[in-house]
Write a protein that binds this DNA or RNA. Structure first.
Lengths: 239, 239
DNA sequence: CGAACTGTTGAGTCTAGTCAATACCCGTGG
DNA sequence: CCACGGGTATTGACTAGACTCAACAGTTCG
């Protein structure tokens, strides 16, 4: 278990990103990193906590340090759809908008680094690589959203669940596909969250997981820990 | 039928956008408009024609002058999903990427204005308002994609079809919702395209249209022309 | 007129949803 | 220690909504 240093007010280099990350800090110069360190604030949220509300004004942006956050849209009658997941080093926030019509909730314990809106916008103004980095991030989000539209619109329940497990596997090991790779991880979402992401009912998600287990495509321990002996088989099931 | 002026090589002000548009030309300075006029090329495509292929390299960007284009993703087994629609004044192209894993097809007769990749990137480099405009466009696309994810993941067939009709109505008259407004338009998509957009079968789309007609929420002439006497009723049916 | 294409309608099937019961996992407190 | 309660997950029985297959209607074009 990692120890969490408390937030310190002295300026120092950025704690936002891990060393090997492609996160935001990669494109900041030293002066900006120093400013960032002075003005950012780190927060923690436990699983299930709301991070940003549906209609709250956006006064800060955030960088995910650890944990997973789900972005949700909710209909009047209560139906809800997860429209995106944010992992470590992902950036959260809607530039150029007063509100986002989206709520963000922690699905596991989450550590965030909050960046004041004014600071972020000032840095964007003076740092073009940062602006370009943000553009690329936004395009990646768009690609992900469109990829998921195919899953929601055209795939069966079996394929959806497999797609989700493969998606997480790819996050754990981005270099999949080369060999018959083995992956193992803890699911960052409850069955209910998975259902909301996949556009299914919890019962269907559960049944499909059982079926995947029966086919020995996955092994599950303690409801949450997933072992995938052959990711290629899983990928094929994902459609 | 409009006459199509052949492309002219003399520099002149931009023909890309209509006067009242929020399109790309709004953020270009006069020198750039002149350069654009020299290097753009206009093309037409008939309904059903492929505009950009799935894996073709991106050598040009494009501005939609008139007509509608669908962006599609296709699975190996042939299932396909429309992940976006492009209308007049919309910009098409994936900045910072070699390929887009997306195909674009005209759904009605389409007039495009092609912008060479190098020119676009040069202008982006020297014109920050343009860069910011593109960022906003991308964010709008992301919002639209996420909105549609809710439709695909959580809405019934009846709600999906109503959502689609309302979406088009909003495009025809962006100031809807104020009063009990009446809207009338020609559907820019075939039943098959609608099905691919909505994640439904053509038969289900057809049945839902029949049902909407029976409820007198819409009136259809010649299969394609839709009249909506009370857009509020339609919106309610859209969930 | 027939062919090709698009759209509508009907009948039967099947997938995924709903409702309900039960199992499992933990933490609390007797 | 075990009993109890609350939350989460699984499983079963039944149902409803959308899909498939198939027939047919309406248009356009040669």
């Amino acid at each position: 278990m990692p120890t969490i240093p408390p937030h310190e007010d002295e300026p120092r280099t950025c704690r936002l990103c891990s060393v090997r990350s492609n996160g935001i800090c990669r494109v900041l110069d030293t002066s900006q990193l120093a400013r960032l360190a002075r003005h950012t604030r780190s927060t923690r949220h436990e699983a299930g906590a709301e991070v940003f509300g549906d209609e709250t004004d956006i006064t800060t942006y955030a960088n995910v340090v650890s944990g997973v956050i789900k972005l949700m849209k909710v209909l009047e009658d209560g139906r809800q759809q997860v429209v995106g997941l944010k992992f470590a080093n992902d950036f959260i926030g809607r530039i150029h908008a007063a509100s986002n019509a989206l709520s963000a909730e922690a699905t596991s314990e989450v550590e965030l680094c909050l960046v004041p809106r004014a600071l972020m916008e000032a840095m964007l103004e003076e740092n073009r690589p940062l602006e370009r980095w943000l553009m690329k991030e936004t395009l990646r989000e768009l690609d992900e959203a469109r990829e998921w539209m195919v899953t929601l619109g055209r795939k069966s329940a079996a394929e959806r669940v497999a797609s989700f497990l493969y998606l997480i596997a790819l996050h754990v090991n981005p270099e999949l596909g080369s060999d018959t790779a083995t992956v193992e991880y803890d699911l960052p979402l409850t069955r209910s969250d998975m259902a909301d992401f996949l556009g299914l009912s919890i019962e269907t998600v559960s049944r499909q997981l059982t079926e995947l287990r029966r086919l020995e495509i996955i092994v599950i321990h303690n409801k949450r820990h997933v072992h995938i002996p052959d990711t290629e088989r899983l990928r094929q099931r994902a459609g």
